[in-house]
């Protein structure tokens, strides 16, 4: 069994968080393939995905301050510029220009389909056009649902979705009013499924992105291939949240 920490996946693009959750002056703390991340937006709207580590003494940058143009570390106040990650100011040496060595490790990131996507390394052999790496190539109307944090490995969740979900979901949660069928795998971290509303019998396709935090923790990012009208938006969001909450609970309990 390949570990999610397999180095080759560092060249893959992963959705890490819904774009709209990276609000003004916030710093979102995350992880990808065991790498801690600090994700933030400057006041110009540019997104940053940084190693969550201050080059000075290693403090997590996510406990720092987003000033709108820089991140200021909570500990000794060193400041790092949006995009470059370069240190711009060291309070203990206000007249010194900070050395270029004092630069945060930054990662490539883009915003697409309602998510912030990150890859930890460029794939040297095949430097593909970003577009070609995504499953969704056409312009679709999409709805990002609530991402569900799960204490189970990505392999565990993927295997359960592919092998057991269709037959066992109802057994595990008889009161669920929707189900998933026709689950197919696009690649190791992206599945496609048909979600069926048991009452109306209407079905919608959805993409299920698996985002490995660590070897045994995963975020499930469900992306609906449809728009939801405002009147039923809240109910629908709750319905899908229950669905993926159930999947989370099952994958966490029988974690073998």
């Amino acid at each position: 069994m390949t570990s999610v920490l397999d180095q080759s996946f560092r060249g893959w693009w992963f959705p890490v968080v819904r774009s709209q959750e990276i609000g003004l002056r916030h710093i979102h703390r995350s992880q990808l393939l065991n790498q801690e991340l600090a994700i933030w937006r400057d006041d110009g709207g540019q997104i940053n995905a940084w190693e969550n580590r201050c080059p000075h003494r290693g403090t997590r940058l996510s406990i720092g301050l987003n000033t709108g143009a820089e991140i200021k570390c909570q500990y000794h106040g060193w400041r790092y510029a949006s995009q470059s990650g370069q240190c711009t100011f060291i309070p203990a040496h206000p007249n010194m220009e900070p050395s270029p060595r004092y630069c945060v490790n930054t990662y490539e990131c883009i915003e697409k389909y309602g998510y912030v996507w990150v890859r930890l390394e460029k794939d040297k052999d095949k430097d593909e056009d970003i577009e070609s790496l995504f499953v969704l190539t056409e312009k679709l109307s999409l709805t990002t649902l609530r991402s569900v944090y799960t204490m189970a490995s990505t392999t565990r969740i993927r295997d359960w979705l592919i092998n057991n979900c269709e037959s066992q979901l109802k057994v595990n949660s008889p009161s669920l009013d929707c189900s998933l069928t026709g689950i197919q795998q696009h690649h190791s971290f992206c599945l496609e499924a048909l979600s069926i509303n048991n009452q109306t019998e209407k079905s919608v396709t959805m993409f299920i992105y698996l985002h490995p935090l660590t070897d045994d923790a995963t975020v499930i990012h469900p992306l609906l291939n449809a728009s939801i009208s405002p009147e039923i938006r809240l109910d629908e969001l709750r319905r899908y949240n229950r669905l993926f909450g159930t999947i989370r609970d099952v994958c966490e309990t029988d974690n073998v």
Partner: peptide, 13 residues
Amino acid sequence: SRMAYPAICRWTD
């Protein structure tokens, strides 16, 4: 860890 609770983190902001 509060990593898995992003809505809580935004509320604490």
